[in-house]
Every structure is written in C-alpha cells, then in structure tokens.
Design a protein around this nucleic acid. Structure first.
Lengths: 226, 226
DNA sequence: GTCTATAACCGGATAGAC
DNA sequence: GTCTATCCGGTTATAGAC
C-alpha cells in the first residue's frame, strides 16, 4: 500500500520477482502444471517465502488478470479514437479483447471459474476486486461518451455497467469456443453488438418508458455490488 | 451401464454406500472439509476403493446435484398443477428451487464454480451433462405448456431454454445472496418474473417480428450446445 | 473380468526457527 | 523477511482376492 517511489523496498522487489516468475511459468506450462515450488525456484526464493507474499497460488492469477486488462485497454484505443459510431466502438472494444486474450483462453476459463466463487477475491462482485471491476466498466463509459447517440438520462447512467455485463457474456461464450482464431465468438460479437445497439434505441423509445423505468429500478435495487 | 433389476450387483451397492456417505458428510461439514478418507471410512471401504468407483472427489458432487434437481421437480408440482397463469407458474418454479436448495447455498456455489469450467463434466454446456440439462429445461416446457398464453411459434420453440437460462441467472444471484432466508433472491425472482412475462408479451408483438426473428436466429446459430 | 486394499506420490499450504 | 521441515489431502500405482 504505502511505498517510497525513490527506493523500492526489498520486499517489493522480491514480490515482483515472484509475480514475474509466475507469469512466465503460467504462460509456458499453464496454471495447473505450474507448481508453487517451480515459481519459488524461478524467483530465487524458498517455497515458504513465496507463500509469505502470496497467500495462495490462486491470488497469483490476479496479476495475470491485471496484465490482460491493461493490454485490452491499450488495444481498444485505436477504435475509440477513430470512430464515433456506437456500434463500431462497442464492437471494436469486444474485438480488442479477443485479440488480446486469444492466446490465454485456457487461463480465462480459470479466472472465470474462480470468479464464480462468491468467496474468491477474484469474484467480480467481491469487495476486493471493486477497483478492477470499476476500471473495466470505465472502458464502456468511454465507449458511450464518444458515441453520437442520445439515450435517456436514466438509461445512460446504467448503460456502462450493462454493457460490461454484456461483454462478460461474450467472454463466457468465448471460453467455450473452440473454433479457429475464436471465429465463432467474433461472429457472435458482431451480430449481438448490432442487436444491442438496436435494443438501446428501442429502450430509449418514449413508449417503453414505464417498462424501462421498472427494469432500471430493479437493476439499482438488486445490484449485487454494494 | 447394463444391470440386472433383480439382483443389484455388489458393486452397485458399494457405489451407493459411497454416495450416501459423501452426501451426509458434505451436508455436515461442507465439501472442502470433507476428505475422501472420511468418505471412504464412513462408507466402510478403503480409500483406493472409493477412487475405483469415483474418479475424483468432484464427480461425487454430481450425485448431490442430481438429488437437488429431483427434489426441485417434486417441489414444483404443486404450483404447476394448481395454476395456469404463466407468471404464477414461472415464479412458483423459481421459488420451489430456492426452497429446496436453500440449505445448500454454499454447495451450489461449488457446483457453479465447477460448471464454469469448460472441461468439467458438471459444465451445463458440456456433452456429458446434456441429459441433466435437458431435464432441467423440460421443467420450463411444462411451465409454458400449462399456461394460458399465446406466443408465436418461433418464440415458443426457444422459450423453455430461454427461461432456463433466466433461471440460471437467478441462481447466480442467489449464490451471492447473504440475506436471511434468501429474501433478496425471492424478491428478485418475484420482480423479474413479472418483467419476463411482460417481455414475452412484448416480443410476441407483430411489430417486433423482425427483431424477434433476428434474435431467435442468433440464438439457434450460436447455441453453445451442439 | 470385477472388486478391494495398501502404500506411495505429489503439490498446496503452514509452523516455527533464524 | 527468509528459510527448512512438515503436514495434509487428493490422487495414483500396484498387487492381489473373489
């Protein structure tokens, strides 16, 4: 938490060495085949020492997740700065994620599995991962802000989180997608993003205001996240 | 696979003893705290023997899942035979599940976590669990069949699976729900089931036929299940 | 070929000395 | 903060009984 920018403490460096070792080994052998003993050895520390810094093997995955997220944001910049069409922007961000995470599909499955566990720190609804989640949602705020669409204020407020949820659905599909170069997921993203944009327009229709109000209220009331 | 109805083979009985032991211990101590050695001892078999019948600790959970499903179907019968209103029937089935599974919320989380793994036999999209999944979807077929609603044929065909998916969403919420007696989930089910019924009516509107067609086509094309 | 038992392995996790 | 030694439990190898 607190940390001198000038001299990075010894602990910090050791910790970084362990993370680096884990990332390399995870990439090379996969999560299951990578043992904590291997991680410790590569990092040049003892097994017990590795556990001093990381309570479990599982939490080492978080580092991996963070890395992927950063790469995703970077890869999204191109579309986001070149088009103001909602559909292009949304689809572009989805495609960027596939591009970036494609080599790590098996990993993503692990992350997803853990995320499904209510008690896991990786759980996206969990307090511990609030920051990560909010960062991910922010990306969709940018998607909307830069698009030339008019949506009712009430909907606009919830839209980023809704789109994030939608994108999580795409990820879920992708995890099960065995097609070459994730072609099926790419197709799915292309088709559904178009529909999502249409649904946003539909939901913005004044005639549907009562239903929309109700759904949005529900979302607020039952948001799992505090 | 093949098995005489008359004399249950010795193996069958041993297998049953192991499942029974596991279910009791899981209920009593939870999944993690229950060791395979405990299960074996309680079943009166050796550890190796338990593994002869069950390839892993994980597959023992399937027995638990099956038991819950059967109980859910049974508990659903009351509403299904007493009302022909779609909303009542749908909500009734959702409530029945909460009633039945309430004591096992922590378990359900484990099942869910495993189900999220593409390679797990518990994965609802996995070939191995096709039968279980179809059985679950069938329940929603009954929900619709006995209801006095008119929906376009194309939608009717997909509706059971759609409702099943919706119900899985409720389960996901429930897993994270820490409220007394799952009160929040019950409220969520009540509110959303009402909205779902309204959405079905909306989607049945002739004006929305083109969009509906498109969404349904998408569902068919991208069904994860073969 | 169907079933059962014993012993060992392996790796995640912890205790406690320095 | 770091190490060594150890535990613990899922899983496997293997040998033999029915």
């Amino acid at each position: 938490m607190q940390q001198d920018a000038a001299k990075t403490g010894k602990g910090e460096r050791t910790k970084a060495r362990i993370v680096d070792a884990a990332l390399v080994l995870f990439r090379e052998h996969g999560y299951d085949a990578t043992t904590m003993r291997m991680v410790a050895e590569r990092a040049g520390v003892s097994l017990g020492n590795a556990y001093y810094y990381f309570k479990s093997k599982e939490v080492l995955l978080q580092a991996f997740y963070k890395e992927m997220h950063d790469a995703h944001v970077a890869a999204s910049q191109e579309v986001l700065s070149s088009s103001n069409k909602l559909h292009d922007r949304l689809l572009g961000v989805l495609q960027a994620r596939i591009d970036v995470t494609e080599p790590y599909r098996r990993f993503a499955a692990l992350l997803f599995r853990q995320a499904a566990d209510p008690d896991s720190p990786l759980n996206p609804f969990h307090e511990a991962s609030r920051a990560t989640r909010e960062e991910a949602i922010q990306l969709f705020e940018v998607v909307i802000e830069g698009a030339n669409v008019k949506v009712p204020k009430d909907l606009a407020k919830e839209l980023p989180e809704l789109l994030w949820t939608y994108s999580m659905g795409i990820v879920l599909f992708w995890i099960h997608d065995r097609s070459e170069d994730s072609a099926r997921t790419r197709k799915l993203a292309a088709h559904t993003s178009d529909i999502v944009v249409k649904l946003i327009r539909l939901a913005s229709n004044p005639l549907l205001r009562p239903l929309r109000k109700r759904v949005l209220e529900l979302l607020r009331d039952f948001r799992v996240t505090g």
